[in-house]
Amino acid sequence: MRQVVAWFVLITLVAFLLAGALLIHPFGYPPSDMDDYMIANSQAETANNNVVAAVLFDYRGLDTLGEATVLFTAVTGVLLLFRALKKREKKT
């Protein structure tokens, strides 16, 4: 029963992925209004040459803040888990 449900979920998800791959824009010609604005204006607005760095730290800075929070939380969780594991093994 579980195998049947798993196969059903897998086939449905892959079918949706393939349908999306066929219905998306043609490869190489994406819709690009926002990105054209960023490419044209990033040197005047953020004063650096690298448009990816401008997007990462200026236009979408809140995104990078959340990413840094995720990294910080993961490292804190790893260190906490190892310390708890060490303490438990020392006790027994």
Binding site: S32, S42, V51, V52, A54, T64, L71, A74, V78, L85
Partner: peptide, 28 residues
Amino acid sequence: LPVPQALTLTNIVITVSVIALMLTMVMF
């Protein structure tokens, strides 16, 4: 386009964080 490249960078870092945390839990 620059925005998908910035999102790729975000996704790489988040994947590394999640995998580190999951490997720790598997060791546990």
